[in-house]
C-alpha cells in the first residue's frame, strides 16, 4: 500500500488560548513495502503525524491518501485494519485476562472465523517471540514482554502498513534488537513500516528512507545517507564518526548502518595501519 500525506496541518485547540499548530504543512509518502524512519526532537510533531496515518486525528487542512484514494472517504474500520497503529507505551492498553485473549481482541472484531483468529494470534505472538506467554496474565509480564504482546495485538490484524511510535523506548538492548528484526522481517514479507524513534542509531539500522521533523515541518526526507551526511549533527553515531574523519578519508564512502561502517573503518585501518 502507498500512503500519502499532502500538505497536512494539524492545530490543537484552535481558537482558544492553548492553540498549538503541531503540524505545519507536512507532505510525505510511505511507499509500498518500505521502512520509513521518522525522527525529530520532542515536540517536533512525530506522534501527531503518525496519528494521521489512520485518521485517528483528522487534518485541520490537507489530506491523506491510500493508494491514491482520499482516506477520508474510506470506512474507518477498513482504514484502521489496513494501517495498524501502535502507540507509545502500548502496554498501557492491555486489558484482557490472558495474553491470548488480548491479542485476539482486534481480529475478533473483524468477524473472522475462530480458526482464523487463533492462527493469526499464534502467528503474531510467534513473530514477536511471545508464543510462550499466551496463557499468562498481562500484569505478570515484564515491561519488554508486555510491549511485545501489545504489538502482537496490532500485528494480528495483518495490517498493510504498521506504524510504530517509539516501540523500543524502555526496552533492553536484546529486546530492541529483536524488535528491529521484526521490522526487517515484516518488510521482507511486504508490509510497510513507519518507525518513529528518538534513537537515530536504530533508525539507521533499518530504515530505507528517513524523515526528519522539526517544529511540525519536514526538515529533510530521503535516503538515510543523503539525509544524515548532509546534517551530521542530527545523525547517528556511526555517521558522526565517519563525518568527523571527513575529507581526510574520502574512500570511506557514506556508510550508515553499523555493519557497513565497521567494515569501512576496518578496511581503512588495515590499509593504512
Amino acid at each position: 500500500m502507498r500512503l500519502e500525506l499532502r500538505d497536512v496541518w494539524h492545530v490543537y485547540a484552535p481558537g482558544n488560548g492553548f492553540e498549538l499548530p503541531a503540524l505545519r504543512g507536512v507532505s510525505l509518502t510511505v511507499e509500498d513495502g518500505e521502512v520509513l524512519g521518522v525522527v525529530g526532537g520532542t515536540g517536533s510533531g512525530k506522534s501527531t503525524l503518525v496519528q494521521h496515518m489512520n485518521l485517528l486525528l483528522a487534518p485541520t487542512s490537507g489530506a491523506v491518501f491510500v493508494d491514491g484514494v482520499d482516506a477520508g472517504t474510506l470506512r474507518k474500520s477498513e482504514l484502521r485494519r489496513r494501517v495498524g497503529l501502535v502507540f507509545q507505551f502500548p502496554e498501557q492498553g492491555l486489558f484482557a485476562p490472558t495474553v491470548e485473549e488480548d491479542v485476539s481482541y482486534a481480529p475478533r472484531q473483524l468477524g473472522l472465523a475462530g480458526d482464523e483468529v487463533r492462527g493469526r494470534v499464534r502467528g503474531a505472538l510467534e513473530s514477536l517471540d511471545a508464543a510462550h506467554l499466551a496463557r499468562r496474565a498481562p500484569y505478570t509480564l515484564s515491561g519488554g514482554e508486555k510491549r511485545r504482546v501489545a504489538i502482537a495485538g496490532v500485528l494480528a490484524m495483518s495490517p498493510e502498513v504498521l506504524v510504530l511510535d517509539e516501540p523500543t523506548a524502555g526496552l533492553d538492548p536484546v529486546s530492541r534488537e529483536r524488535l528491529l528484526e521484526l521490522v526487517t522481517g515484516l518488510r521482507s514479507a511486504g508490509t510497510s513500516v513507519v518507525l518513529v524513534s528518538h534513537d537515530l542509531d536504530e533508525v539507521a539500522e533499518v530504515a530505507d528512507r528517513v524523515c526528519v521533523l522539526e517544529e511540525g515541518r519536514v526538515r529533510s526526507i530521503g535516503d538515510p545517507a543523503e539525509v544524515f551526511y548532509a546534517d551530521p549533527e542530527v545523525a547517528p553515531a556511526t555517521v558522526r564518526v565517519v563525518a568527523a574523519l571527513g575529507n581526510i578519508c574520502p574512500g570511506l564512502g557514506r556508510p550508515v548502518r553499523f555493519g557497513t561502517t565497521l567494515q569501512a573503518l576496518r578496511g581503512l585501518l588495515e590499509a593504512r595501519g
Binding site: 553515531a237 558522526r240 564518526v241 565517519v242 563525518a243 568527523a244 574523519l245 581526510i248 573503518l265 593504512r272
Partner: peptide, 19 residues
Amino acid sequence: TPEDLATEILAEIGDGAGV
C-alpha cells in the same frame, strides 16, 4: 564520543593532523 574515536582512528593510520 564519535569525535574522540575519529581522532583515535586518525592516530592509528598515522595521520597526526587530528580532527
